[in-house]
């Protein structure tokens, strides 16, 4: 038993048990943002979602968007490039905070 059980994803709609109006607004927004071709194709959106799923480390989303990418016609090479983009951004985001470290070092006169 862990906090993340794959079967729990099917119970996501339980979150809408209370304040269903907010849940419905979220679902409509989610569908509009991710589930339709727009300026970006559904495949491109699925690859972005897969990258974000890794960066935010959501196992539900990783499962869902691995399938979602395949069903949108993405290849394993494209999916792997997407998570490398996420990993590179994560690394860069960590490193760019080094500027803060430098600012503080300089502030200390070090």
């Amino acid at each position: 038993m862990s906090y993340y059980e794959p079967e729990d994803l099917k119970n996501f709609p339980k979150v809408g048990t209370f304040k269903p109006d907010l849940w419905e607004k979220f679902m409509a927004y989610y569908q509009a943002a991710t589930g339709e071709d727009g300026a970006l194709s559904k495949r491109e959106k699925a690859l972005i979602a897969l990258a974000v799923s890794h960066s935010r480390q959501c196992p539900y989303c990783i499962d869902a968007y691995t399938t979602g990418c395949l069903e949108a016609g993405a290849t394993p090479d494209q999916m792997t490039e997407a998570i490398h983009v996420a990993a590179a951004l994560d690394a860069g985001i960590t490193l760019v905070h080094g500027v803060q470290m430098h600012n503080h070092l300089e502030g200390l006169g070090a």
């Binding site: 495949r43 395949l70 069903e71 016609g73």
Partner: peptide, 17 residues
């Protein structure tokens, strides 16, 4: 046809690919 347990992508998009 998909290699595993998932549904096929949109036929027209895939044909273009």
């Amino acid at each position: 046809n998909p290699v595993g347990a998932y549904l096929p992508p949109d036929q027209a998009t895939l044909e273009a690919d």
